[in-house]
Amino acid sequence: MLSCPFPISDYPYITMAHGGGGSLSKKLIDELISPVFSNPLLDQRNDGASFITPGDSLAFSTDSHVVSPIFFPGGDIGHLAICGTVNDIAMCGAQPSYLSVGFILEEGFPTNDLWKVLQSMKRTADDAKVQIVTGDTKVVEKGKGDGIYINTSGVGVIKCDPPPAPTRVQAGDVVILSGDIGRHGIAIMAAREGLELETTLKSDCALLNEAVMSLIDAGIELHCLRDLTRGGLASGVIEIMDTASLSMEIDESTVPISKSVRSVCEILGLDPFYTANEGRFIAIVPATKQDKALAALRSHPLGNDARIIGKVSSGDPGLVTVKTSIGTHRILTMLSGEQLPRIC
């Protein structure tokens, strides 16, 4: 790994002056941030990036990242910040092209940690084949931030016509889940709370654009795509069914959950259906295309455990039910906030 080019001996921590718009701000951007993301559009050093749209229909999305701790098993805030927006654009059926990056740094944040985060963002952006073409950096006083916050926004070219959207979901469609759920939420909780697990559980944080492209390239008619982030699988499907005014039944026994995630959830009284993911998505497709869609998704490493987990019907609008492992039914509802571990 390259070493940090910034004169750390002079400034091992971010100071207010790095956000003041003067020479130290310029130094931070010129010597630390810009060289990492260097590309012709960024290097124009304009107030924004100017480019010719590479396609007729564009998708545009934004995502802010405040994760704590910033380095966690399976990723870091930089990796997450690129994956977050790339995945949101991919869920619009688009191939992401350009990103913007906004940093809010807290006074006292170690410059070396910023360097590590930048390197991680660069690697992830390269993997996603996206360019970071514009950005911004602000510094807030110590105590008014949590080290580092990152916002990313981006545009991508829509690759399927019509693009997937909740309103396109139809009764009879099947729901395909790309792999096991709950790893990001539990890995973060374990890292944050110092839970000692027998195995190291890693976040599933990953770029989903290629897995989505494998579906598009296979010519699958994509009715809806959704990456399952905060709120987990449950919140994702409830939101879609709410917008689509349709009903869905999920077969619990078909939803893959790793042994570690299940164990931690059992101990703490958490429900993996509501636990966060950062590298999983659902695809809602016509039943006639289910085999082809499964085959396409399984051909990609991030989809090799893809399964059909449920079916859409014209029942109660917004109703999502789960067929439990013992054959009964329960209803999934939105949680009012974060899941809280129970007493006993």
Binding site: L319, I326, G327, T328, H329, R330, I331, T333
Partner: peptide
């Protein structure tokens, strides 16, 4: 009750 059977009580069984 609210979380798992918002609409109906008791939950219909398919079993």
């Amino acid at each position: 009750y609210y979380i798992h059977r918002r609409h109906t009580a008791p939950t219909p069984s398919i079993c």
